[in-house]
Design a binder for these strands. Structure first.
Lengths: 195, 195
DNA sequence: GAAAAATTTTAATCTGGATTAAAATAATGC
DNA sequence: GCATTATTTTAATCCAGATTAAAATTTTTC
């Protein structure tokens, strides 16, 4: 309820909590994971979580917000560094997958949106739509600069995003597999874009 | 508890129930959908569902079994009709998407497996693994017959399946969109396989 | 090292939703 | 139409898991 001096410690713990929550939600789903499940991962009691968050719903909400931030950052970076549309797509895929399969684990999944309360749901949906729109814009740029063959950017975007979003469903932390994903997926998912 | 004469009616109702359940689970997740939610779709009371099923867990379980059957059938059909590996993949994609976006709605999602009890979970996981293995075999055949460029079939299979499995997350019954998916996805997802 | 603030736990409550049993209604066979 | 069977509802019960309040413990400050 109070936090002044140790802003850092508090934020650090909260961060751990959000990651633990994201992992649980990924594995068992929102309603499928109890607060005790999340707390166990942290070596805490379920009640302790209320020190960091108002209620369970806020927990998912924050997971999504954070996922949105990470998604935006990786896309920003890919756009900043990409030489052309296709190169930008490939970089985005790699950066995204590095985070998802990295030791910090997947940030969040976009599956529990219906569980959010209306205001939060709308906010997250808008963030999600923005992200998709930006990604589609990258595809369009690629078509214009000639690095990507003409295609339905909406459908192509959905296809690629689907593949990415599904990864947490079958990737469970095995680093060997993780490295393989990072190595293979960008190529596989972008192969269809070329002329 | 009893059923003799009207085997047909009973099966018919059960069928409707499974589809309603699958739709709910897709939209809100397993624990997120109450039996009342499922019953509402059917114009029934939650208690009525117990006439068809022992408990809620059995409901998801049956959804998965059915999804497995449908998946196997579409793959069977694609394999039977496919001229070569690539053609088989494309057919499978089309058949699968036609079912998923068809008026009977998505059959089931592979997201709630952790909610199943161990025996059921193992059974469904094996069905799922079998399906993946068969799909990967199709990819291998395509590589051998020269219709598909050499690739890591495991990763490629996961990438394609992920795209497919994610569709129910963003497709919510709009027939126009459904037709577009059927028209575009097979091409998009198989474009990267060609030489 | 003691007071104050921060963090976590213990021990209740409270609630939605699964489950059950008995009763009510609808369908079917004769 | 009557008796039997099939289907659904009504009205409890039951329980896991969210939430809360007060107490205990740990950390920080000076």
């Amino acid at each position: 309820m109070a936090r002044k001096a140790s802003e850092t410690r508090w934020e650090l713990q909260k961060d751990r909590m959000l990651r633990a929550a994201a992992r649980c939600f990924n594995e068992k789903g929102y309603s499928g994971s109890s607060l005790k499940d999340v707390a166990n991962v942290l070596g805490l009691t379920d009640a302790a979580l209320y020190y960091y968050v108002r209620n369970k719903e806020e927990l998912v909400y924050l997971c999504y917000l954070r996922a949105g931030d990470v998604g935006r950052e990786t896309l920003d970076r890919a756009i900043a560094e990409g030489k052309n549309g296709l190169d930008t797509v490939r970089r985005y895929l790699r950066y995204h997958l590095e985070v998802m399969t990295g030791e910090r684990g997947p940030i969040a999944i976009m599956s529990e949106i219906p569980s959010l309360k209306p205001e939060h749901r709308d906010e997250i949906l808008e963030i999600s739509r923005d992200h998709s729109a930006r990604f589609e814009a990258v595809l369009e740029r690629g078509i214009e600069d000639g690095s990507i063959a003409p295609c339905d950017v909406r459908m192509t975007g959905n296809a690629i995003m689907g593949s990415l979003n599904w990864v947490p469903k079958w990737f469970h932390g095995d680093t060997t597999v993780g490295e393989k994903i990072v190595a293979e997926f960008p190529g596989i998912l972008s192969a269809g874009l070329e002329h």
